[in-house]
Design a protein around this nucleic acid. Structure first.
Lengths: 359, 359
DNA sequence: CTGTTAGCGCCTTCAC
DNA sequence: GTGAAGGCGCTAACAG
């Protein structure tokens, strides 16, 4: 009798085993007096099982505390019910709120979330890519602006993966995968127009890291805004940055030391704006009386800056949920839009005002 | 011939399949002209394989881009090489920096990290607990202050899990699992003593959420500090809070409306301290001239508050790494210490000073 | 409606 | 040093 397993043979009835192994489908089947197939069906497609059998199976499952082994299930079904999220920096609160949205949506769908945090070590990526190749995940959400095996600026042969990929927050140029983001360019343009509308004529811009797609979009929006108001673009007003607090501090120091200062500074994210405000204040400049500062993202601490920061709100949680929804649709085999854009909102607080008279 | 699989029969040689299925160990074996056992050994224990076979296997693996299927591996080995991290709030930057440390260490060890974000829905926990029961993870790191199936205040029968558990950052009273944290009580005591040493005699304390173990420890430290300096504990100086920015804002509003104010306020975390400083400043009080404010945690934005916040630094990343190390040791079957305490540091910035003369 | 059976892909005795 | 073969736990045919 081939299907007789050793485990059944050496079972010692009426005696608590030393290590109570988790119940298997066999155990449930035996207790419910049905075959394993019926147990399996009772779980996956209850309609196909008679009421009596169903009841006995439920009872047995409850008694044994049975939970199907996930490795066996994955092996058999070739699905892991797990999604990988690749991101550049887990500790960045911007990303972690997006993660919340992702986790939330995946949870609803019964999926789990594995985190791949690049954390400045591009070589970690290979292992994360392997998750997709070994079948540990059914799909991946890319928040890092490039495909597996590709560098940020698009060099290198992108690795073909067998699972669906979705780009979230940062479009991946040239990649033929769904993209979900806000319209960074339009938002940056709106902010620039708002500052110009306040009367500013020297509006500086603090960049994100070079080569970053977000950065390119936001900078272009800034430029378009300037051009739309006849102010014109002046390369000297573009200050280097990298999205860190420290970059904001450095820009602040530079500005404090300058003879001629812009009357408004648009930072391409809130961290830099907060670092900048802080440094300007410490150096004796009053924001917004002497100089206006604006950010981008509306992180939680933006409202806590002194003065509270004018910025662009991104629907972070919604972005995360949307990203998860798209990949779930893809996993269901449904078609999805190539590109989804969520709305941003210009949040005016107290860090921006009309320029000083002599400015 | 029983081992002849259908796949081998319908293979169409010299023709690219429509869907290039991932290579299996069989494919490698065939190409390298060895058995699957040899391939497996070449990967897991190369010493047992002859040089020639090893070379052919490597070559075949490279040619086929073979990566072992993880579900099959998990099923066979009963290990998932995956750790679950349960935490109350993913978007809290305090946790996300700990996560970074965890991920980092797990990565080094070849493990992956699954996130279970409770996010205010305690019922999510059951599914996360199931990850441990279905074999999807080999262990779990608990940052949420209680065991599976238990409420925060220790009610309810804690669920027995078959995998190792480790409590990180917040001890779980009564649980017989390793605990890793800082000495919250000693740190709170030190901060209280520091404020008293500055000359403050009315030192208020803003609580965390009731029932929270961290909170209990920090509050006790505050109390001990007061008693050690003969100031004595005054329940009226304990203000309710819940670790959110909003709580800090509420406390600020209360204080602004009060007749008699404390000269120093020790907040049990930085978020609240930042909300408080902001509200006080908006209400016309100058920190620290009129009132000193201190926090706990030293989150990134603590240094960006206006004025920069005096606080307690926790080695967050190190806490994460340590937690991961402990669970990895447990998975290796090694013994681990029951309790690990990491050092904190009192970081004096500009939000604290001697009390005003008339205070 | 239900049971039997054959693997999913891998690792690991066991035999040579 | 190497190969043959069984089975980890489950589900999806295929019969009945």
């Amino acid at each position: 009798m081939k299907s007789q397993t050793p485990r059944e043979l050496d079972a010692t009835p009426d005696e608590e085993p030393i290590t109570p192994r988790a119940a298997r489908i066999q155990d449930v089947a035996r207790l419910a007096q049905v075959s394993t197939a019926t147990v399996s069906r009772a779980l996956s497609d209850p309609a196909r099982v008679s009421a009596g059998a169903k009841a006995r199976v439920s009872e047995a499952i409850a008694r044994l505390g049975y939970l199907p082994n996930s490795a066996a299930r994955s092996l058999r079904s070739q699905k892991a019910r797990m999604v990988l999220v690749v991101l550049p920096d887990l500790s960045n609160s911007f990303f972690s709120e997006i993660l919340q949205g992702i986790e939330d949506r995946l949870y609803e769908a019964g999926y789990g979330m594995i985190i791949g945090n690049l954390d400045g070590s591009p070589q970690k990526e290979a292992r994360f890519a392997a998750f997709t190749a070994t079948g540990q995940v059914d799909g991946a959400l890319l928040l890092n602006g490039h495909l597996f095996g590709q560098t940020r600026d698009g060099h290198g042969e992108p690795m073909k993966t067998s699972v669906p990929l979705v780009a979230l927050c940062e479009a991946i140029p040239g990649a033929d995968i769904p993209q979900i983001e806000v319209d960074n360019r339009a938002a940056a343009r709106a902010m620039t127009l708002y500052l110009a509308g306040l009367g500013h004529r020297r509006i500086a811009y603090v960049c994100g890291p070079a080569g970053n797609v977000l950065e390119v979009e936001r900078c272009r929006g800034y430029r378009e805004g300037l051009e739309a108001t006849q102010l014109g673009f002046d390369a000297d007003l573009v200050l280097p940055g990298d999205y860190t607090l420290e970059a904001g501090i450095r820009v602040g120091q530079t500005l404090l030391a300058s003879e001629v200062r812009p009357t408004a500074v648009f930072c391409s994210n809130d961290e830099m704006a907060i670092g900048l405000i802080r440094t300007l204040a410490a150096g004796g400049l009053r924001v917004p009386r002497d100089i206006s500062v604006a950010g981008f993202d509306d992180i939680v601490f933006a409202a806590m800056a002194d003065p509270p920061l004018t910025t662009i709100r991104q629907p972070r949680r919604e972005l995360g949920r949307k990203g998860a929804s798209v990949i779930l649709d893809l996993l269901k085999g449904q078609g999805v839009p190539k590109r989804i854009r969520l709305e941003t909102e210009l949040v005016v607080r107290e860090s921006t005002a009309a320029p000083p008279p002599q400015g």
